[in-house]
Design a protein around this nucleic acid. Sequence first.
DNA 1: TAGATTGTTAATCGATTAACAATC
DNA 2: TAGATTGTTAATCGATTAACAATC
Lengths: 224, 224
Amino acid sequence: MTLDPLNPPTVPSPAEGIAPERLSLGVAARLSRYLQVLTQAKKMGKETISSQELSDYTHVNSTQIRRDLSGFGKFGKRGVGYNVESLVSQIRKILRTAGQHNIALFGAGHLGRAIAGSDIFADHGFRVVAIFDTDPAKVGMAVGTQTVRHLDDLRSVVEEEDVVVGVLAVPTAAAQGLADDLVAVGVKIIFNYSEALLDVPPEVTVHTSSPAVDLLYALYFYLT
Amino acid sequence: MTLDPLNPPTVPSPAEGIAPERLSLGVAARLSRYLQVLTQAKKMGKETISSQELSDYTHVNSTQIRRDLSGFGKFGKRGVGYNVESLVSQIRKILRTAGQHNIALFGAGHLGRAIAGSDIFADHGFRVVAIFDTDPAKVGMAVGTQTVRHLDDLRSVVEEEDVVVGVLAVPTAAAQGLADDLVAVGVKIIFNYSEALLDVPPEVTVHTSSPAVDLLYALYFYLT
DNA sequence: TAGATTGTTAATCGATTAACAATC
DNA sequence: TAGATTGTTAATCGATTAACAATC
């Protein structure tokens, strides 16, 4: 059975395991956000969480949250809420991101080192398996558990380590060249921390980090 | 005239300057994204841009973009596209973020220094006017054009510099305490780069940066 | 002129919300 | 039991899209 991703069934079967083959963009985005909050709640030792609490942290309406979740099974307990640990594993299953995924990081400057040293990717099953920098002075330097590599190693690392994501923590001027290199070796997801507008083939997904956009947005509602 | 923000007129007057008083959440978010792309396009010397090009970079449907913009005036030229520079200033006017806004940054580690050295906020009119760190060894150190300050200076800096946003580039364990401090001195927008789930009063907006969430989302569509 | 792209309409689809019975 | 919170319905609203005339 192949469903048109743009036209998922409007009433997905509520029976567990009989979910539509592909989530809508909105549902996938929201489930990812729930997962982030749940992961942190679990770290803080929280055992259950209500749809209202999830709503407070994600700014998604609580009815919407219950609706999103109930499409895949009856995960909650009335009067109690959702078990944090079990909900985490349920959502990971739904998103099919329960496994480990490998990242190649570009740029061993402040930002690159901040990313390499953060739990933010590790908590969600992403592992930085290589760090690259074009500065010869940085090649060989230790960053976290990794040693900074030369770009010549890119193809072999991507193939041997099964890298699925490239993260660009480099100056804007260097970003397009590295994006081209990533495309050339078959990486399909690029996470761009520079300001560059990257041109890539249609099968490659680019996500550009945009803290200033989020700020502008927050500021608008503060000012009005 | 006061409009209910949850019920903006469905057909806003197309006449320039007679826009609804408050944009819907969706429109404000999309306009902010257009602005990011336009700002970078302007930097790259691009003079005009079509709704299709904006769509390629923002992943927003091109009809939606034309619709969003035409609600505020006829900014485009048929057969040509939109003038980048004039569209930037129009959107800034609409978002009422044409001025300068001051930021206080917390944390002078790798992430804090990466933020302080980046154009990403400066390009959108945000200026880092102070950097704080609780580590006495870092106080007094130069970061970019600023000198790292002690937290004792927080209240006076916020008042003298009219700080509207606090950016937390600190370890997760320190984030809630600093959020409390920011709330206490009246800052209403907090940008959180830690993984902490921050509890703040309802009038304060928290935005938590979530690169891993975006990655999970991109990965889902790659895997399916 | 011919090609390109905006501005706008109309139709459809998905998101949002209030409300409340079910039930822990 | 009483209080809390889920799961679900039904109604409404906003987003999305295709299509195309207008016009640069």
